[in-house]
Design a protein around this nucleic acid. Sequence first.
DNA 1: TTGGAAATGATAATCATTTCCATTTTCATG
DNA 2: CATGAAAATGGAAATGATTATCATTTCCAA
Lengths: 121, 121
Amino acid sequence: MNKSDLKMISVLERTGGFASAQELHQILRREGDGIGLTTVYRALQSLVDDKIVDLLRRDDGEAIYRLCGDGHHHHLVCKGCGQTVEIEGGAIENWAKAKAEEFGFREVAHTAEIFGLCSKC
Amino acid sequence: MNKSDLKMISVLERTGGFASAQELHQILRREGDGIGLTTVYRALQSLVDDKIVDLLRRDDGEAIYRLCGDGHHHHLVCKGCGQTVEIEGGAIENWAKAKAEEFGFREVAHTAEIFGLCSKC
DNA sequence: TTGGAAATGATAATCATTTCCATTTTCATG
DNA sequence: CATGAAAATGGAAATGATTATCATTTCCAA
């Protein structure tokens, strides 16, 4: 956990929703921070490794990052403004477990995201 | 639906699981087909638009394609051999709908995939 | 047969992400 | 304070998937 990591956490806190590495870099630059793109990628990677931020993918494959609460959970993401809500899996956890068992799969993980327009957009 | 589209459907049928555009291109080349990478991308895009193939993303963001049955469904994907099983959403459909409603989201879509090791791997 | 539209594929362009590497910062220790 | 090694940094180049361009070829209806 070094200075750059903390800087990234700070931007992610301020932006709230998901943002790509390039966007986060631009925001910091706009604020007068001379941080390099390389360092942004490095810091984000390190935070993902430490499970402090979540990594997922936009439709076009670009990686987007978000500061993340503890534990396993899913997201409700607004296509308009990017704002996200963390939600508990609940039913989906059981669904994934049951299906995996049904087909004899082991060591399973799952992803589930809901996309839509929030009430403001 | 042109000749290239049909060719892509044919490879996808033979490979069974998910494959990237680059992999599909290599397979065709190996079989003596002189098809260009550009055409492979174009055909896949067109098939995705027509909802004949499914597009999802590997961990690294690379797009992978799979021939797909009708209607809305999810996948159980083997991390070992890439083999996939289409599964009905069931519980997850309701879960997504309920959560979206709870937070006032409209026009929602969702993704859900289960990854694991199949009985053979 | 033929004229134009659609399809094709090589090449170049784009764009996110990684790699390389030289420089700077940090910091414990003498 | 000096200093030297390790970690951090950032610019530039490399990489790799995907897309855009464009000249050429194939198709097909009239």
